[in-house]
């Protein structure tokens, strides 16, 4: 790590002010992505603003039509929350499947979506559950939040404070994990809201995307069989030593079917 100044503000306003004071300041969430990056000397922030002491951006509460989760809520808290388990069990399952126990005990929802890793799990739920991302400045529709690989709609210094997820009639997340890192090689979130169905795919492409052919098919016939013969194209999908683009494309259909089956 290079040297940096560490701050622990107690209010959102203080955090925003600290961020404003330096161009190279960075927000610290659970540190599961940022700290390894610093240890590898791949980033050199002047200041780290730890959000961990700000009560306003923590916790889970049931709200009209869904659940609001504070940005500094750990994956494990989401996984073990009675509220999440009752209102949107698929979201608790998703959180339970992130990384390993240590990562879940430290990593946060805000950190995960702001990092916008192409193989992160939460982005599939943010888009799949028609979420709204709240920041210290505005509200951003989940559909508009992820703009590319490791890119979001956030402006410099903008702090995510909470995410509001809409309650679906049914939903499930099926993940094919990378055996080494345990991130998603492919993760498919399927959610049904009345006659509308969302099928969102993470891991396969540079950023989360909706499999619209699958959505149309499932809107007509919400059964796994409805996805027979429907596949996303391999063009433009990610490829690495763990999975080629072809294999990822294949897995999208397999995982989508499994998610539909898991919706019951």
């Amino acid at each position: 790590m290079y040297e940096f100044t560490y701050h622990r503000p107690k209010t959102l306003a203080d955090a925003a002010a600290l961020l404003g004071q330096s161009e190279d300041a960075k927000i610290l969430g659970g540190g599961q992505t940022l700290l390894p990056t610093l240890k590898q000397r791949l980033a050199r922030p002047s200041d780290l603003i730890d959000l961990g002491q700000i009560p306003d951006i923590k916790g889970i509460c049931e709200e009209a039509g869904g659940i609001a989760i504070g940005a500094f809520t750990r994956h494990a808290e989401v996984a073990h929350s009675d509220v999440v388990r009752r209102v949107i069990p698929a979201l608790a399952d998703l959180a339970e499947g992130i990384g390993d126990r240590q990562v879940r005990n430290m990593g946060t929802l805000g950190g995960s979506i702001c990092n916008a890793d192409p193989s992160a799990d939460y982005p599939a739920a943010v888009v799949g559950l028609k979420a709204t991302v709240k920041t210290d400045r505005r509200e951003i529709a989940g559909d508009d939040f992820f703009t590319g690989m490791f890119e979001t709609a956030l402006e410099p210094g903008e702090i995510v404070t909470a995410v509001h997820f809409q309650k679906p009639d049914k939903a499930a997340y099926a993940k094919f994990r990378n055996p080494a890192s345990r991130y998603a090689i492919v993760g498919v979130f399927v959610a049904r809201f009345g006659n509308e169905v969302r099928v969102t795919v993470t891991g396969a492409g540079p950023s989360v995307f909706r499999a619209t052919d699958m959505e149309t098919a499932l809107a007509q016939d919400f059964r796994a069989e409805a996805l027979n013969g429907i596949a996303v194209g391999a063009d433009g999908l990610n490829a690495d030593i763990h999975a080629s683009a072809d294999y990822r494309a294949h897995l999208v259909t397999v995982m989508a079917k499994r998610a539909v089956e898991a919706c019951g």
Partner: peptide
């Protein structure tokens, strides 16, 4: 290429 545990897959207890 497999220079970290992100890519070098060690067997784990649940495997």
């Amino acid at each position: 290429i497999t220079g970290s545990y992100m890519d070098y897959c060690m067997p784990r207890a649940d495997d």
